[in-house]
């Protein structure tokens, strides 16, 4: 089996300050990897470097494209990278309003990626939008409502539908459950888990919520000050942490 994503020696500096440094790992098809660490540990910087939102100062992000096999997305041309991010990649933002067009209806939000890759049949686009609303548990009758009329949890689910409609293979998620209340979080996690398995998605999830990674992620990477201090199987890292920082992180979680 070949990796879907190979990250090699990624480094990003902000002047003299390290954003993230010397990060390498392979992600295989169907794997979900969590990246945890406190605010400022470099996890979001790393995610943005991998997703092409930031240009790393060093390193490679090699993605197994459908057409040409493994290609370094850092050096690929911008049109190619943008095409990738509309088709095979998806990015779920922490704040739904960063990932949605708030002035466009739910149907239009979901349909955008389809239209971007050339779909030109209104009826077919609308049918797929409605299908996806159902899959993220939003009523069909809301298809023409704007996301501004949705609750936070619904907005987040709509963002997920909008991202997954083109059947991507790799999803980047930046704190996907942040800012949602606990019951809404649970529903979203359940939904994400189902979609990940159903569609065979690979995903990279940045979060500071250890409960989220325990439920969603197969593997875990722990970051501190821009470096990966520990990586491994999620439950092993959480139940038998080896590094001092991970031990601190795990022991800091309040038990309910």
């Amino acid at each position: 089996m070949t990796p879907l994503l190979q990250v090699k020696g990624i480094e990003k500096r902000y002047g003299a300050r390290i954003g993230c440094s010397d990060v390498s790992f392979d992600l295989f098809p169907g794997e979900v990897m969590g990246i945890v660490g406190e605010s400022g540990s470099g996890k979001s910087t790393l995610l943005n470097c991998m997703a092409g939102h930031l240009e790393p100062d060093a390193g490679q992000v090699i993605f197994g494209t459908r057409a040409d096999g493994p290609v370094d997305t850092v050096t690929m041309s911008e049109p190619e990278r943008r095409m990738l991010s509309r088709t095979d990649w998806a990015f779920v933002h922490q704040h739904a309003r960063d990932g949605l067009r708030m002035s466009v209806s739910a149907g239009g939000n979901i349909g955008e990626r389809l239209m971007a890759v050339g779909d030109r049949h209104y009826g077919a686009i609308r049918d797929r939008a409605i299908d996806w609303l159902g899959r993220v548990e939003i009523e069909e009758s809301r298809v023409d409502d704007r996301p501004s009329a949705f609750s936070g949890g619904m907005q987040q689910r709509l963002q997920i539908a909008r991202n997954l409609v083109t059947g991507p293979r790799l999803v980047f998620m930046d704190e996907p459950t942040g800012g949602l209340d606990v019951s809404v979080q649970a529903r979203l996690l359940d939904l994400l888990r189902g979609l990940v398995r159903e569609m065979g998605l690979s995903a990279i999830i940045v979060t500071h919520d250890l409960a989220v990674v325990r439920l969603l992620a197969d593997r875990l990477m722990v970051m501190k000050s821009g470096h990966v201090v520990e990586a491994g199987l999620t439950d092993q890292v959480l139940d038998d942490p080896q590094h001092a920082y991970t031990q601190l992180l795990v022991s800091s979680v309040l038990q309910v």
Binding site: G232, L233, D235, Q236, D239, D240, Q242
Partner: peptide, 9 residues
């Protein structure tokens, strides 16, 4: 048991 399951290293 946990060592066998890979839960403990």
């Amino acid at each position: 048991m946990r060592v066998i399951y890979g839960n403990y290293l």
